[in-house]
Design a protein around this nucleic acid. Structure first.
Lengths: 217, 217
DNA sequence: TGTTGGGGGACTGTATACAAAATCGCACCG
DNA sequence: CGGTGCGATTTTGTATACAGTCCCCCAACA
């Protein structure tokens, strides 16, 4: 029963396509409003239409694309208004995630969070800003995971990617500032301080909101 | 083949199948852990495997089914633990939705909420308990919609259905009690009382949690 | 009796084919 | 000159076909 090397051949194309389409959207190579023609995407990615269709359904329920019956899918447009709405949601969900993470903190989750922080610090120092944005999302995802709430994690992850998307569309990324706040959040979680963790998380999101809104002016 | 017998309109089969599978799961006709064999479902619903596959992807990202690559999909099992987790999430999200609904309340949203309340009261008086459960979900969904936050609505709806699912698995439905609380929530929203609305919503969820946990004993 | 290995059936993954609907261009009519 | 209807093309929706993999059963052997 030759165990294969992890994944490469066994990862369904549909997952590859989903990830790739999401990347294309997040990276801005597919612009909001742009139509997603199944045939063309299939050709571009070298697969048949079927995996593409399944990927589109997934991205639709995640909110990255909008599909109209018989008229196909298009990259979702996010209005300034929707961007603002997203911050309300983040504050609530990430606050909850931080509180639960603090409540249930374990040596393992502590180590995991610190690992992301360290990797990110290195990236900031090297000025690899693309990596920093991804690591930012990874840190927040790690907090969600540390909450031990499976459904919360399921909901938070697409939301984080969507938030990252919003940010990408606004000029810069307030990287260093963001990471000092992360450290504070990490310490509260590591100390098992529920109230502190929640407060740090919501404050962090609100700071991001202010930064975002300033850019809009 | 397989002309659209289910929906008289031009509604894509994939949507019909998604809704129908969700219904089967929520109604308990498909039990947690039960495998979802594409062929069989396709035969049962009188369609080909393709719409079924797309429906399964959607239900997977909503958390109703779990799919393992090359091994297919199965109805998600929800442990008692996960049920508890769900209440945390509901408290946070529905609290937020109630607050925003109160902030942005309009005559239209007020009317919409009251309409659901009235329909529900009639159903309670007639003892149509199946309808009551659906109307309960509908009321909470209406609150989410009244928040005017599109992404919040997108996230809340599957969560509500999931919560309804959890309840179905516990014996009874604490219908009448629940609806007095709804009236309180409605009044706070209608009055534009943000703090009151949020408080009502979270208290309502916590009451539901206690009722649920008592059943478990 | 327990283990191993292989064969066959069952099911998923992916591609291709065909049908139906929407869109666009263009001629024709007012 | 603008609107309208019709056909060709594009694109989605659905079905079918085939290949690859997993799994279970059972027989052979230690």
């Amino acid at each position: 029963m030759a165990e294969n090397t992890v994944g490469s051949t066994h990862r369904p194309l549909r997952d590859v396509v989903t990830t790739e389409l999401r990347r294309l959207i997040l990276a801005g190579e597919l612009n909001p409003g742009e139509r997603l023609v199944e045939d063309r995407l299939a050709g571009r990615l070298g697969v048949s239409r079927n995996p593409v269709r399944e990927a589109i359904r997934v991205l639709a329920t995640e909110g990255f694309v909008e599909v109209t019956p018989r008229r196909g899918a298009a990259v979702a447009r996010l209005s300034a208004e929707e961007a603002g709405e997203l911050f309300d949601l983040r504050a609530a969900l990430e606050g909850l995630a931080a509180r639960l993470a603090a409540r249930k903190v374990t040596p393992a989750s502590r180590a995991r969070l610190r690992a992301v922080l360290d990797t990110a610090r290195a990236a900031v120092e090297d000025g690899r800003m693309d990596d920093v944005a991804d690591l930012n999302t990874a840190f927040h995802a790690a907090v969600a995971e540390a909450s031990g709430n499976a459904y919360l994690t399921l909901v938070i992850e697409p939301m984080l990617r969507r938030a990252q998307w919003v940010f990408r569309q606004t000029a810069h990324y307030r990287a260093s500032h963001s990471w000092t706040e992360h450290v504070g959040l990490y310490e509260a979680i590591a100390a098992g301080d529920e109230d502190g963790a929640q407060a740090h998380a919501t404050a962090h999101v609100e700071a991001a909101r202010r930064s975002y809104e300033q850019d809009q002016d």
